[in-house]
């Protein structure tokens, strides 16, 4: 069954609208994913990396505190150790609450265990004991645990940095995937408009022009417009109506 011009135009525009709706929805969806990825990166990895850095700094200061105690600087050493311990524990709490990667929980437990061991080394008196000025004790006890703890914290930072890199790559791909539908739908819409223009001319303008030409060239006595339209659409009906009207005029003329 031949489609009417109205239906054809409506169908054509509906197709164009559906293309734009799909492109718009896809872009919105991808941009939303992009926004979520940004948040994920900030919340999951960046916080853990910052906490690891703070823990490392605090640990370095604790090491300096132990060295001060070894030198007999009790007051200065204890002050640094307590302040650094507070900073370390705050950062550790942030990292503990932000377990997002595989094996991160095991690393956090390992850091906690090692830190408690390390803390035991400096929590007990050092000044005025055999430990004071004893570099061998420092090397074999406190410094060893300090190195091991530092390695674990570095591992924690490393898995978060790797994940951050992976997510950033994904972010780049998501950004690409969010933009591409828009670019393609813009090109598609331009092509679609050109096609629509072609069909409007072919189905609407050309037949109308032909009809006008046919009506203009009507000879006296030849009351018939030759149809050139193959489609049974509104223009075809208009041709039929004009022919009917011409026949009526011809009959009236004859009756006079």
């Amino acid at each position: 069954m031949a489609l009417k011009l109205k239906t054809k135009l409506l169908a054509g525009f509906m197709l164009l609208v559906s293309l734009l709706i799909v492109a718009g929805s896809v872009s919105i969806l991808e941009f939303m994913k992009l926004s979520t990825s940004f948040t994920t990166i900030l919340e999951n990895n960046y916080k853990s990396i910052e906490a690891s850095k703070t823990m490392l700094e605090a640990l370095e200061r604790e090491d300096s505190g132990i060295l001060l105690l070894l030198l007999g600087e009790w007051e200065e050493g204890r002050k640094i150790l307590h302040e650094s311990d507070k900073v370390f524990m705050e950062a550790f709490t942030v990292a503990k609450k932000n377990i997002t990667e595989a094996n991160e929980d095991e690393l956090i437990a390992d850091i906690q265990r090692k830190y408690l061991h390390y803390k035991e080394k400096w929590a007990r008196p050092i000044v005025d004991t055999f430990k004071e000025g004893n570099i061998d004790w420092y090397q074999s006890n406190a410094h060893q645990e300090f190195i091991q703890l530092k390695t674990s914290i570095n591992q924690l930072m490393s898995i978060n940095q790797e994940s951050l890199y992976e997510k950033a790559t994904l972010l780049k791909d998501n950004g690409h995937r969010a933009v591409m539908p828009s670019i393609i739908s813009i090109i598609g819409a331009i092509l679609f408009s050109l096609l629509l223009n072609f069909y409007l001319n072919q189905q609407f303008i050309f037949p109308l022009k032909k009809l006008i030409k046919a009506v203009k060239s009507l000879n006296q006595g030849d009351f018939q417009v030759q149809s050139s339209n193959k489609n049974k659409d509104e223009i075809f009906q208009l041709e039929l109506e004009i022919n009917q009207m011409l026949k009526r005029i011809a009959r009236k003329n004859d009756s006079r």
């Binding site: 489609l3 054809k8 169908a11 054509g12 197709l15 164009l16 559906s18 293309l19 393609i184 598609g188 092509l191 679609f192 096609l195 069909y199 072919q202 189905q203």
Partner: peptide
């Protein structure tokens, strides 16, 4: 895109 551009000429 394929379906839309494929169906469009058939309408006309």
């Amino acid at each position: 895109t394929c379906i839309i551009f494929g169906l469009f000429p058939m309408v006309f």
